[in-house]
Design a protein around this nucleic acid. Structure first.
Lengths: 233, 233
DNA sequence: CGGGACATTGATCCGCTTCAAGACGCGTGG
DNA sequence: CCACGCGTCTTGAAGCGGATCAATGTCCCG
């Protein structure tokens, strides 16, 4: 869908990082910047690096033959993404906001020569990813759409929530379609669920991608299917 | 739902949940045997070992507060299961057939003293698990129940299919409820989908847990949503 | 100001869940 | 050997929730 687009179009005020190797995958230890829509890697790509996300948000997806897309995960700052299997990436990855990632050379097949510390971190990252995928399954398997959406918002809240006075703010980096493909729903259903949460005064929307959590306890109850425990219902 | 009953009968009949204090978690390198329903570990257990499955089939599950169960994966011979996160198991695990596993001591936090070969295998196992979980997502995200079930049968076919003349045989080690909880369906819907596949002459059932794949090509088409490509529809 | 991408809302339809009943296989005990 | 009970699988009928299709609203950016 997206063609390779020049990376030096927008938001280039930070440093003089103009000598980025063109069209190369990057270099060890040199921060790589992506603009929204730009790909970091594709499925089946030979994996030269794993990437530590420094800022921004990435989207990890797999697509099936019928064109349907599954969002496997979102990559937030602090995440290590791009762990390969048998030397190849197992998902597609593109940026949904301006992104900075730090590439680390990653030759899993030659672990003997690898820095022990890096090796340990890689293992830790892999085990963490396993747990996050399992958590994702629990959300994905929720019965009602509203529960899925609430659980997703809780996830975001814990990950990128920003305190605003007594309450918390969530700046949604992804659009409704991304949320839908993460949860196994349609964008319309996601929108309806959000509208419903707003009607219950659990959240408030500034604009479509900026929400204030007005009743965090209630949101967490709804996320677990305990609608009864929540006075908002 | 399940009665507590002694599990040492040696019979492999009904699945019996038997909570057993893991006073003898096993010993490094000594094959451990489980009877159906017996647990290998529980969620949040401190993880002393990972296990290589030698024979039989295990079920890895996570349960949520409302009692709903999500089958995360099945452990087949050759699989390495029980990879911990932060020193603890992230799922529950019990046997659904008689099982033999080989425990390997696994102190991820102390990787320096670990045999490099074992370390490499652990990493490989972790990366493989990530890919398998991602594959699971694609199946879970299929639109129609019949596609999910077909995709699941293809998975089993490739994993434990037994050639029988020209065709292939699948001995289902798990019941309909397990399949349902793996796919995010109800047992009734799984049953109906199987009935439908049988009516289309794609499969034939000997008994409920023994099926012959009569048209493998068609099954694979249905699994990918290409019902049109299949004359059986 | 106008165009495009995205979000919301509405109406309808379909597939799955739910609840219920019956069938089947298997082990036990008479 | 057969009757019984239990767990599982199958099948049926009804209701509901989300998908789909369509129209409108909103924001952003040129």
């Amino acid at each position: 869908m997206y063609a390779i687009s020049p990376a030096d179009l927008g938001t280039e005020k930070t440093s003089v990082q103009r000598r980025r190797p063109a069209r190369s995958a990057g270099a060890e230890g040199v921060t790589r910047r992506l603009t929204p829509g730009q790909h970091l890697f594709f499925e089946s790509d030979r994996a030269a690096f794993v990437y530590k996300v420094q800022s921004g948000v990435l989207r990890l997806t797999r697509t099936q033959k019928d064109g349907r897309r599954q969002v496997i995960a979102f990559g937030f700052p602090g995440d290590v993404i791009g762990l390969p299997c048998e030397g190849r990436h197992t998902t597609e990855c593109d940026a949904i906001t301006p992104v900075e990632v730090l590439p680390r050379r990653c030759d899993i097949s030659e672990p003997s020569g690898m820095d022990p510390q890096l090796r340990a971190r890689l293992m830790e990252a892999a085990l963490n990813e396993i747990r996050m995928l399992q958590d994702h399954f629990l959300i994905f398997g929720r019965r009602l759409a509203s529960e899925k959406v609430a659980a997703f918002l809780v996830l975001l809240l814990d990950r990128i929530g920003e305190p605003v006075g007594e309450l918390q703010l969530i700046r949604l980096p992804m659009n409704r379609a991304d949320i839908a493909d993460y949860l196994g729903l349609t964008p319309e259903t996601v929108s309806r669920s959000i509208t419903q949460l707003r009607a219950q005064n659990v959240i408030a929307l500034d604009d479509a991608n900026t929400m204030v959590v007005r009743d965090e306890y209630c949101l967490r109850c709804l996320a677990e299917g305990d609608a009864e425990l929540c006075a908002c219902a």
